[in-house]
Design a protein around this nucleic acid. Structure first.
Lengths: 333, 333
DNA sequence: TAACTTACTGTAAACGTTTACAGTAGGAAG
DNA sequence: CTTCCTACTGTAAACGTTTACAGTAAGTTA
């Protein structure tokens, strides 16, 4: 009954207090059945000593950290916040904790992160990178824990992947042309990123199908944020000749709305605007933003669920999911 | 030279390969000096075996997890994202990892979280709660790791705290009245939360100083988000009688802008709008939002720095910082 | 030369769990 | 009655580090 308040009670203390072996305490805690008689003794001892199992001891012995590492390019971007939230939604019901990795905007940051996972601080890895590189692919293939990839980064096949299918830009373009006619401007993010490349490709192909050389209708921002979007838009001399703008994400669309508002060009009356990602932002902007939804929160939830499933049963066959884009109409188009 | 590719190399393996004792390997890794002759042997063995120290072993022996737990009410809110980013900014330069706790909107969620920290999975705790409760205070006082509190939740004194001083609403009110005159509406969040209470108090006092009973000029949203803001605003019959609206955060301000835009009431020509928090949102909205800055990213950075400082030297005297509000003028007021 | 100091090294014991294994008690089956 | 099975139990050995301690070699001082 001598309780040391300075240091935490261990399983040994509980075992002594309950007058059972430490193994029984461990088994009881981990949900195995113990003799009916000793169960209340253990419960009592645990609460008397305020015992909580030590994560490190557990992790060391069982080689399980109960942690999932989530890596997104940049937590400033609403779409990654939404994905993070999705992951959290699922993890919170479990006894897994969420580790938020440092941002991974560059190849080097990605490599350092993937490398660090060798220190065994996480049981699973949810990976979302905007950049692609053979070194990333190689490092990734040496990973010793299950991983889920969100997005189109190229890695080996032994992972669950949640991709977004390519049709978003085409979908938006069709909508804009059908509804408004006229010329369409594509405000893209950097083509050094995977989505930048893919979305440009989607735009050019869709334009080609219409017999137009899309290249003249693209303006590329230096990054996927509002500032860069504004800078890019200011390079366009005669923006009024466009009937609509499709933007590679909602932040760029926000930039477009601001730019047009500054120029007193009415949206969508004069120029219609569409974003991609359908983040929380879309409902906050005025006019509210018509945006192409890739179900970010759901993708986060899916990723977390895939990891949990695989941790439970490593033999599960690898799942390859494609999320179809869906246009959500609001005021801006 | 027999390398087992199935299981990770341990320090023992490195020691054997380098023909030194495991203690020397450990010391070398932890930056202590070793005999000049053996240093290259260890380095070589480490890279040959691709050794990475195991976090769990380290954590168990050294009672240090190298993890900081961050708890914010709800990652959906831009202001907490910004704070998270600030924390990340500081942590990324160190060998500490960031754990993102589940949301803590309710008292129960807070209690469960604080309780869970007894499992020793984090070395430090950054705590930001909207709700206050004696049980939280009590649980918090039993915490065995250093903590930093962001915001005005009541806990014991042996923590570093980063508060925001009360003047924000007063500041905004003065600005609005001086600039526009007329009546001011205060769109508040729930008064069941700490900032809701404080901001209401600030508003009522500031109004009283002007000889006005502020109570009639307050509308309370059910939560600090856009939807709730819109719902609350719709209950106001004749909004045109107000010359300006001050909102308890930027999301509510976004709701105000949307509401006014729907009603075709020009901002700031007919009604001016001010938000609080000066989140990324402010620059994205149109008209861009005049908002009262509490330096969220900086607060996150400060919190992380405080934790690191205290982990380095537990004797550091407890710091109590107050962040003064600062009005950032943009288009909406 | 010896005695002392300095600067390092290796041995071995932790840290707090989980779990293989051997053991035991009690009931069922023969 | 013995034998077998079931359902538990406790002992003790890990897991991979860090670190107290004792030991040693080389350099310094007298």
């Amino acid at each position: 009954m001598v309780r040391n308040t300075k240091t935490r009670a261990t399983m040994h203390d509980v075992a002594r207090e309950a007058n059972v072996s430490i193994a029984s305490v461990s088994r009881f805690i981990n949900g195995q059945t113990v003799r009916e008689e000793i169960e209340p003794r253990i419960t009592k001892a645990i609460s008397a000593l305020n015992f909580k199992p030590n994560s490190a001891g557990r992790a060391l012995r069982a080689s399980k950290t109960q942690q999932i590492c989530l890596s997104v390019p940049d937590i400033s971007n609403p779409v990654y916040q939404t994905i993070t939230k999705g992951v959290q939604n699922i993890l919170n019901g479990t006894d897994y904790r969420l580790m938020l990795a440092p941002r991974n905007l560059t190849v080097e940051e990605n490599l350092a992160l993937i490398d660090s996972l060798d220190s065994n601080y996480a049981d699973g890895f949810i990976f979302l990178s905007l950049v692609d590189d053979p070194r990333i692919r190689k490092a990734f293939s040496k990973l010793r824990i299950p991983a889920v990839v969100i997005g189109n980064v190229q890695v080996h096949d032994e992972v669950d992947t949640i991709k977004v299918s390519a049709g978003a830009v085409e979908l938006g373009l069709t909508y804009l042309v059908d509804k408004y006619g006229g010329e369409v401007l594509f405000l893209n993010g950097p083509t050094s990123t995977i989505p930048g490349r893919n979305r440009e490709k989607g735009f050019l192909e869709a334009m080609k199908n219409r017999g137009i050389d899309g290249a003249k209708h693209v303006v590329e921002a230096e990054s996927f944020d509002v500032e860069a979007g504004l800078v890019a838009l200011r390079t366009i001399k005669n923006i009024s000749k466009y009937r609509s703008i499709i933007c590679a994400n909602d932040l760029l669309a926000a930039a477009a709305l601001r730019h047009l508002s500054t120029l007193k060009i009415e949206v969508p009356k004069k120029i219609a605007v569409i974003g991609i990602d359908n983040t929380d932002l879309a409902n906050v902007l005025s006019p509210s933003l018509t945006s192409i939804d890739y179900r970010s929160e759901y993708r986060g939830e899916l990723a977390a669920q895939f990891i949990l499933d695989r941790l439970e049963d490593p033999k599960t066959s690898y799942r390859k999911v494609n999320i179809a884009p869906e246009l959500v109409e609001r005021e801006s188009a």
